[in-house]
């Protein structure tokens, strides 16, 4: 078997989710090639070459791949896919964008967000916001797969010594243009890579009150997240959102503050190793997934927690 993993990167280095995707590829088994596609991304390719277990790094460095537009990335993936039995990428907004496009161009189905590898053609994936797990078998000749990265450990970033080979890039599709990225500005660790996350919900009442969580996050080296309700109420920006329709995370410790625990929020955090819920409503569904529940007014409990740390 031969597997192509499409790496997510920022031109200089790999995004962590790529390392989890490599692990999923290793579980399928076979030679693993990593594709780095972008404009001015040679440094990311060098980083990719160090990843343990990688056979070759394919470098597609071209102006047409600026902004990694789905049309151009998908065309590149299609031009390479014939050499592989499996094509994998992380189920991030990057991977979810181009992979179904590539699959349709190849007339293959896509297997979305696998959480477990059973065999080379059989996988488990969550459905209904993780309320059920479907075991599916694919009959396609090339398996195009996105990987739920929280379900796979990260591959070692070093220890490999893959060769970097340049690959040809098709012409710009001309269908779309990258205008810009307004990156969220945070000095904290990224939600998706943090080992501790503290999230606030509607119970926080306003954006100002989220600063209470900042202080605890600073002490614990944690990332700050939020429920959809808090985001929709305008307390915090959308990239804070943890849930079925936001980020799916599985940190070592997840602290839910003033979050009731809607199905769609639970889908985004219930694989966390340890879950703490602080909520004044003892009936809140969040307590059903919490390892430690504290029924208390958050405006008393949070400052107290801050002091105790």
């Amino acid at each position: 078997m031969s597997i192509l993993v499409i790496a997510e990167h920022d031109n200089a280095s790999l995004v962590g989710a790529t390392l989890n995707t490599v692990t999923a590829a290793q579980q399928i088994g076979g030679d693993i090639d990593l594709l780095i596609a972008g404009n001015g991304c040679a440094a990311a390719a060098q980083a990719a070459a160090q990843v343990a277990g990688v056979n070759r790094v394919l470098l597609a460095d071209d102006a047409s791949l600026e902004g990694q537009l789905a049309e151009n990335v998908a065309n590149l993936v299609v031009s390479l896919a014939g050499n592989y039995t499996h094509v994998l990428t992380a189920a991030t907004t990057f991977g979810k964008n181009f992979m179904p496009r590539a699959a349709a161009l190849l007339d293959m189905s896509q297997i979305s967000e696998i959480s477990e590898v059973i065999s080379a053609d059989t996988f488990v994936r969550p459905v209904y916001a993780g309320n059920a797990m479907a075991k599916v078998q694919s009959s396609d000749s090339i398996k195009l797969i996105t990987v739920r990265t929280t379900k796979f450990d990260a591959a070692a970033e070093t220890g490999g010594s893959a060769a970097v080979e340049a690959v040809a890039v098709a012409a710009d599709s001309g269908l779309s243009r990258f205008v810009g990225l307004a990156a969220s500005e945070s000095e904290r660790v990224e939600l998706t890579s943090a080992s501790i996350v503290i999230s606030g919900g509607r119970g926080m009442q306003n954006g100002e009150n989220f600063h209470m969580l900042d202080s605890i996050a600073d002490k614990l080296g944690a990332a700050v997240g939020a429920s959809r309700a808090a985001v929709d109420a305008g307390f915090v920006p959308n990239d804070y959102q943890v849930g079925q329709t936001g980020k799916v995370i599985a940190p070592d410790l997840y602290i839910a503050v003033g979050i009731s625990g809607a199905i769609q929020h639970l889908a985004g955090m219930k694989d966390s190793k340890t879950i703490v819920a602080i909520n004044k409503d003892s009936e809140a569904p969040i307590f059903q997934v919490a390892d430690y529940g504290l029924v208390a007014d958050l405006f008393e409990a949070v400052p107290e927690l801050d002091k105790a740390l």
């Binding site: 969550p126 879950i275 307590f287 105790a308």
Partner: peptide
Amino acid sequence: ANRMTTIEVMEPPARAAGVIVESVAELV
């Protein structure tokens, strides 16, 4: 024609029941 066969649909693994702590001190 579908390319995938659903072999089975399972319940997600259940989390072990947690405990309610009485205070912030106990939580920490």
